[in-house]
Design a protein around this nucleic acid. Sequence first.
DNA 1: TATGAATGAGGCTTCATTCAT
DNA 2: CATGAATGAAGCCTCATTCAT
Lengths: 193, 193, 193, 193
Amino acid sequence: MNRRTAKESKESILEAAIEVFSEKGYSQTTIREVAERAGISVGGVYIYFKNKEEIYFTLLKYLLDEFRERSGGSIEGIEDPAEAVKKYIAINLNYAQKFKGLILIEGREHGFTSCIDIKKKFFRGQRKLIEEIIRKGVSSGRFERCNVEGTARVIIGTLRGFILSLVMDSDALFSQKECSNLILGGLLKRGVK
Amino acid sequence: MNRRTAKESKESILEAAIEVFSEKGYSQTTIREVAERAGISVGGVYIYFKNKEEIYFTLLKYLLDEFRERSGGSIEGIEDPAEAVKKYIAINLNYAQKFKGLILIEGREHGFTSCIDIKKKFFRGQRKLIEEIIRKGVSSGRFERCNVEGTARVIIGTLRGFILSLVMDSDALFSQKECSNLILGGLLKRGVK
Amino acid sequence: MNRRTAKESKESILEAAIEVFSEKGYSQTTIREVAERAGISVGGVYIYFKNKEEIYFTLLKYLLDEFRERSGGSIEGIEDPAEAVKKYIAINLNYAQKFKGLILIEGREHGFTSCIDIKKKFFRGQRKLIEEIIRKGVSSGRFERCNVEGTARVIIGTLRGFILSLVMDSDALFSQKECSNLILGGLLKRGVK
Amino acid sequence: MNRRTAKESKESILEAAIEVFSEKGYSQTTIREVAERAGISVGGVYIYFKNKEEIYFTLLKYLLDEFRERSGGSIEGIEDPAEAVKKYIAINLNYAQKFKGLILIEGREHGFTSCIDIKKKFFRGQRKLIEEIIRKGVSSGRFERCNVEGTARVIIGTLRGFILSLVMDSDALFSQKECSNLILGGLLKRGVK
DNA sequence: TATGAATGAGGCTTCATTCAT
DNA sequence: CATGAATGAAGCCTCATTCAT
């Protein structure tokens, strides 16, 4: 018997699940492996979660919520929109490095509507955050006038791409600095028409 | 019975496999379904391919090669580096829309070393392509001076992110134009220090 | 914590078990559900019963005993054997309606020797009861001369069939009256040789 | 590999399934055992049947159909309604002895609507058969005037009870003769009352 | 080559039973 | 006595792969 409390057990399962899902993806993750890493029996997992999907869903929800809070909080006080963008990028990349595969990769491998919904909501929220920054940047004159919504979408996409890169070629990363530079400055020469 | 030549059979399997892998991902794809869509028997598939992994590998190789050729060719003659970037982005997004899931998503779901290698090589090649464009842009004075390698990496990452977005929220796409605008122009106001 | 005495606990488990076994059959009944309906913990059940089989066995024994007493008692004073048969049929059908599935259905689903024995003994007892009635009927001239044992067996079988019908097609029941009529009067025309 | 044709395999599975379901009931029957007795692998069973339920359903349908045909056929030509009843009883008991548990017992252990429907239809059909015999017997003057539908219901129930007895106390059977006697003649003395 | 029945390992999930608290 | 987390065996089902034809 294990002396852990129910809460501890549940958490150890979730922690193990983060690891395994991140390493192997949803389909390749077996409950057995999650259980082993969590130091619990296979049946024990089912005390806390109805099924594999629920583990994934719980995890996803938890991580997205945490990220939402964290990213929202860090940016709040920043006046300079360029700084806010940099900060937002930094948080994203750091968080992603930590929970690699989990957050952004899986998405079509299993068609869980619940997951799709929660993700859409999350990305919509993030887009609103970026849009706010851009809008502030534009009205303060720091940013070029642009299609705010489209640009926000592009930035979100960009960051996802970064994270994907993190996952796939774990060696060949690019720096946050280059990333911020590109997004803020673009490729074209200043002053050139 | 069957009129198809060996080559035709093999190709029909690959075509079916593209479809199914794209729709369902690697794990969720069954040989049976591939065989059915290819109009061949289950056993027949194993005449042409050693196993599931080899189908995936062959497919990946084929698509990456084709893309490499196509993207290389389209850009070759373009003088204006900004145009070349736009063109490159357009090709990427079009191609991705066609073969969605296949190219970029799967990759960690199964740890096939062969696939990892081939992908790394591909992305390295693409990066070189971009680096070349950027370098040309910088030396011609059209682009800002910048860390060429880092920037290329970022652009590649960006495009992956776009493609990922295509796959995940198939509704909420952004336009190629916004994408090009951001990459070329950045957010910051022109002429501003 | 719990105010119940041991006896109360045990009884509440048995009551819950009657319900669940009747509703779902032996195999589909889970200890968890019995425990829940009894308002006790899973482990608590095992304080009072060695295992699932023992619960079933105890229950069966209890119900058969109760029925034996009840049916024996009701018939005892009745002089007219036809009335006694009617009464016996009525008691059977009423009791069955109450504990439907339990008594008669399960029985082969699990091969518990203990249960088989107890059932055989019960049915032997019931047969003796019927035989007694028939014998009395025959010697008093009310009943046709017949193979008493065989006829008793048939009647017992008949009643089981009724009860089975009760369980299976809970809508399409037949009346106690028709049942008594058939058993008492048969199909053939009176007076006809 | 097995040389059997698909049809042979499917049949051997069904034959094995009849055996095991009859012996153990639905819940206690494992696919593994059915497969073993059929001389096929576990996976092989699923080539021919979607799942356990489908095996059961197929079997049930087959047996009911066969029985329907057989019993209908045997009775058809018989003029004397009393003979027809005897014959019907004989067929029922013989058939039941052969396929014991399967046909009539299981029914609530699993709540497969498909099975419930098919059984109801079957029993309705059988009832019509009996009703026809009784009606003929009554109009020809051989049988007492009676509630035809109710009586048919009782007879069907009676037979089910017999079969149940067959299954449960496999030793203590009663004879077909006693059964026919009771149903035809009843207990009450001829000419009395 | 081509077929498709067959295999069997392995995944998910359930549940009777145990045991530390 | 009571709890309920934990165990682990066992069941159903899937599917990549093989092989007799």
